[in-house]
Amino acid sequence: MNWITRLIERPSAILGRSRQSPPEGLWIKCPSCCEAIYNKEMERSLMVCPKCGHHHRVAAADRARFLFDEGTFEHLDTELRSRDPLEFRDKKKYRDRLKEASKKAGEEDSVRNYLGDIEGLTVSASIFEFGFMGGSMGSVAGEKIVRGMERALERRCPYLLVAASGGARMQEGVLSLMQMAKTSAAAKRLQQERVPFISLLTDPTMGGVSASVAWLGDIVLVEPKALVGFAGPRVIRETVNQELPEGFQRAEFLLEHGLVDAIVDRRRLRPTLRQLFGQLLQRPYRQN
């Protein structure tokens, strides 16, 4: 067994770290089709398996790189940090969890804001970083989303949310819950001002994030096979005490039940967004 086969045997060893760009010269074993893919090739196909189309999770920084035209985007609102208003402590202190998460996924908490061009159209975007405490939404995430929306309002440019979150952050208690109300209220302002808002749900988007801002886009898109829902599958299984249907809470399930507008392959995302934003911005029957 050499180092390559060892890594291939344990794809999670690589994929766990693939939140950052994959290191040079490695192969990635796709957990879905089990093919070994050269990582440069994987990167070229935006972390979508070229063999089977499996959409790997992507770190926010990579997502921004995949999304915007090269050299056009700024990374903004980077100075917000979580505090510990409840002095929360479970087995670990919240403060220590924050430090660990910062080391692993950067210091910017679970949402990153950008302003950049998508095929020439300037868009304000908030992108969840699932690697930071499971993308959980606390006060910082809520504030950043609202700032991203306010930037869109000020500049009269469209707003994009890329969601990936386990839900509200327990360690900030009811303050996290209130971020649902805060972000939803800001979404209403976008709606009132006719500023287009597209929400992209990615794997996974659950709980308080799915039950607030993530489902409030004028258009709601979802990546193939993404797990999206309110209650987690485990909680539901325990509550109803039965096996869950095949594909439950997956993107295809959502589409079938009329809960999202469309499933979009990541490799088609840029042109899709550009087209949809363009269509929402045109307003041929506008009266004033």
């Binding site: 799915s210 039950a211 993530a214 489902w215 999206v228 829902g229 309110f230 209650a231 987690g232 909680v235 539901i236 509550t239 109803v240 869950l244 249907p245 439950f248 809470q249 039940h257 009329g258 809960l259």
Partner: peptide, 13 residues
């Protein structure tokens, strides 16, 4: 909110 299959199917979130 009810964490059930039916609730999810009808868009609890």
């Amino acid at each position: 909110a009810w964490p059930g299959v039916d609730a999810e199917e009808r868009g609890q979130s």
